[in-house]
Design a protein around this nucleic acid. Structure first.
Lengths: 116, 116
DNA sequence: CCACTCGTACGATAACCTTCGTAGTACGGC
DNA sequence: GCCGTACTACGAAGGTTATCGTACGAGTGG
């Protein structure tokens, strides 16, 4: 019950492998944008299941993988759960201000459209 | 030869119909991102044919239409040419800083990858 | 009027994306 | 050792996208 990090590793792109087009594509899906917003709001690491989406679990897995493979989030196994966190340092270094601008735009649009 | 604007009109989304997801999706294609970068660099209105892309003309038409329907650019007929301009006022009002951040990120990535 | 340029429309194709269901694996607790 | 939880893998269906080629319309200049 040490809750150690599993030896199982997940493939992540290195910082210099992250492409702007890939990040924009990852963020252009409503489900994924929602995930990123919740991760950003949570601040720290969050398990997959703590973010509720109106889709099945396999679809959720798919979206998390797209986010990971595009370099937006980092995923690590922690026992039976998988923790997710935004790669803020990498993204801010590569694309300064992009993440915050998108998040604030998403927040403003949600307020405008009345989506709490 | 007054070079008047043709009566032919093109459908554009109103400002409050523009969606962040649609804009991000439009910008997530390399061809379209390239078009937007050249339009932004040109500053003013630019004809479709003055932007050279490594695809056929029909594909170029397709990409311009995606950009127009997502609300990123405005297109107007001017005689035989079709002029294109970024909807900067609308985008800046809806998503402050987004366009500039994406453009600067695209510029930095192009420099990093050695794409002049 | 004729030719030329610019852009459109209409298939067609191949790839991709989102979504699902089912079956399976890894981990922790009893 | 056995069960439950958390997530994955593997198709598969249905829709969308990017690309092309060819044929067409709209405007300009001879």
């Amino acid at each position: 019950m040490t809750t150690a990090i599993s030896p199982r590793e997940l493939a992540h792109p290195a910082r210099d492998e992250i492409r702007l087009e890939g990040v924009l594509h990852a963020l252009s899906d409503p489900m994924r944008l929602r995930v990123v917003r919740e991760l950003a709001a949570a601040g720290a690491e969050v398990s997959c299941s703590s973010i509720e989406l109106p889709v099945t679990k396999s679809t959720t897995t798919h979206h998390f993988r797209v986010l990971r493979e595009s370099g937006v989030i980092r995923q690590t196994y922690r026992g039976t759960a998988k923790m997710n966190g935004i790669r803020r340092a990498d993204l801010d270094a590569l694309f300064p201000g992009l993440l915050d601008t998108v998040l604030s735009a998403a927040g403003q649009q949600a307020a405008r459209l009345g989506t709490p």
